[in-house]
């Protein structure tokens, strides 16, 4: 048994070491936030996710697409079927070609993907001094540090320290590697008016939009945590029963 523990320890040490090695790449240690979806029993705070969608829609979507999200997905964070239809209907979506061979615009439907601000990457770059605002549907999974990192970036803008030379058009961000960040600070107090009356401070908006984005990247989390609990409980019971059976069967040998 000691050998088993030793082996487990070496494997864990190895895994931990690589994780640490990866994390050590960052500029500053990331401040840890508290998220409703943290931990084994975590779930998405739907009210927060809805506020986050509002922040995305009114602020971020000017530059950033969420191409893997469909309007119908919004039902998962608590919007009703009618609300989803209304949200979709508020967008113009390109469809076609029609019988004349032309592409045309029509109001969005629930089954449509949420359209992005630009028709293609080149248009996006042209509108943003050559920088490409990345798609946000997976951003939380695509960055080391996940939600904490995105939150830190959104709240990490400050004046560059004395003597630090900023490149043309860049913004100083504490948590971005190299500190030269192409995106200007997107959030300012009361940039958005929340429907539920929550005061729209920068930390609040950042918190909510990160909750929304984490859901966007990982919509299965609630399901996954719930079914995971059942599976693991089942396996614990099964392990116990199989162990007892093993001891019983092996009794004459020992």
């Amino acid at each position: 048994m000691a050998k088993r523990a030793f082996a487990a320890a070496t494997v864990s040490a190895f895994v931990l070491a690589s994780a640490i090695a990866w994390a050590a790449d960052e500029t500053l240690p990331l401040p840890r936030q508290e998220w409703s979806f943290d931990g084994v029993f975590g779930t998405y705070d739907r009210a927060s996710a809805q506020r986050g969608f509002q922040v995305y829609k009114e602020v971020c979507s000017v530059c950033h697409p969420v191409k893997h999200l469909h309007f119908r997905d919004l039902a998962e964070i608590g919007y009703s079927e009618d609300e989803v239809k209304a949200i979709a209907g508020g967008y113009q979506v390109t469809d076609g070609p029609n019988d004349e061979g032309q592409m045309y615009q029509r109001p969005g439907r629930a089954s449509d993907p949420i359209p992005g601000p630009f028709p293609n990457d080149q248009a996006a770059r042209a509108a943003n001094n050559g920088a490409l605002p990345p798609d946000q549907s997976l951003i939380v999974k695509a960055r080391a540090g996940g939600p904490d990192y995105v939150y830190a970036i959104l709240t990490g803008y400050k004046e560059p320290p004395a003597g630090f030379k900023m490149l043309e058009g860049m913004n100083y961000n504490e948590y971005f590697a190299g500190h030269q960040f192409a995106m200007p600070p997107p959030l300012s107090d009361n940039a958005v008016t929340f429907a539920d009356g929550t005061p729209a401070t920068v930390p609040q908006m950042a918190h909510d939009v990160v909750t929304f984005l984490t859901w966007a990247a990982e919509p299965n989390l609630d399901d996954r945590h719930r079914s995971g609990l059942k599976v693991i409980l089942f396996l614990v019971v099964a392990a116990g029963v199989f162990y007892a059976a093993k001891r019983k069967i092996w009794a004459p040998i020992h």
């Binding site: 996954r224 599976v231 693991i232 392990a239 199989f242 069967i249 040998i253």
Partner: peptide, 24 residues
């Protein structure tokens, strides 16, 4: 039955680790 049951037990312990990764 000796090693079938022992393998089955070992399997459930392994699955516990595996499913922890998959679900959490």
């Amino acid at each position: 039955p000796y090693y079938t049951i022992k393998d089955l037990f070992g399997l459930t312990v392994f699955l516990l680790i595996y499913t922890f990764f998959v679900f959490y």
